[in-house]
């Protein structure tokens, strides 16, 4: 298991085993232009990273584009990830990666603000004006045609609060099943709340591996599992 440590991080950098990511959360319409400028800068200087690109990098160490790669990651499954961020990625030719808390999507819009506040999903003013905060399943399906969508657990949970077998089944397996039923594709990756690394808990690691995930995203690294 690769645990987070300064010495091993330095070694992997020196071997060229790295990828740039930019992590986003709510992307409100009110600040769309600023986001557009930032993403346009990234699109100018970096190449998009598809799932195939990441697979190849792990398998061969080869990066096949002229520019270095960049993964914009839009966390949680906010409605504005689908209505603001994704269209900008489309315009700019970026591949967005969208970790989605699947029970946030399932939650009745009337209760989504409370769901968010109960589950560490941060909100900006625009998210609290009423109406739906999470993307809906049609938007998830649409996103998956051009971008990468994968579970961020069901309820935006960390491994340290997912304790029983039923909890693990719901958060690790159920979230994958729900997403795949809508997208018709294998969910290729998983990420815990707080970006906990693989290797912190053998029981949870086994659950993630056995569920069939290929990657686990974490705060300091991307783990290839299968």
């Amino acid at each position: 298991m690769t645990l987070p440590a300064l010495s091993s991080t330095l070694e992997r950098y020196r071997r060229g085993a790295f990828i740039r990511v930019v992590n986003y959360h709510s992307t409100p319409r009110a600040t769309r232009d600023e986001l557009a400028r930032e993403l346009a800068g990234f699109a100018r200087d970096y190449a998009p990273v598809t799932l195939d690109d990441l697979d190849r990098l792990f398998e061969t160490g080869e990066w096949r584009h002229d520019k270095p790669g960049l993964i914009p990651v839009f966390y949680e499954g906010y409605r504005n990830s689908a209505t603001v961020a994704a269209p900008l990625c489309d315009e700019l030719g970026l591949t967005g990666w969208f970790p989605i808390a699947t029970s946030f999507v399932d939650c009745d819009p009337e209760h989504q603000e409370a769901f968010a506040r109960a589950h560490w999903i941060s909100l900006v003013e625009e998210d609290t004006r009423g109406g739906r905060i999470a993307m809906n399943w049609d938007e998830v399906a649409e996103l998956s045609r051009r971008h990468v969508v994968f579970p961020h657990t069901a309820h935006h949970e960390g491994f340290d609060t997912v304790l029983s077998d039923a909890d693990i089944e719901r958060e690790v397996v159920g979230s994958k099943t729900a997403l795949e039923a809508v997208t018709g594709q294998e969910a290729p990756a998983f990420v815990w709340l707080h970006g906990s690394s693989h290797g912190q808990s053998p029981r949870h690691d086994a659950a993630v591996r056995d569920a069939g995930y290929r990657y686990q995203f974490a705060n300091t690294m991307i783990h290839r599992l299968r």
Binding site: R15, I19, Y24, T60
Partner: peptide, 27 residues
Amino acid sequence: EREGIPMVLTLADERGPLVTATDDDRR
């Protein structure tokens, strides 16, 4: 809400030895 959090993540292969980048510039 206006800026992303950039990170340069490393790649960790839990299946076996990590492949070193083929590109000199990348290393």
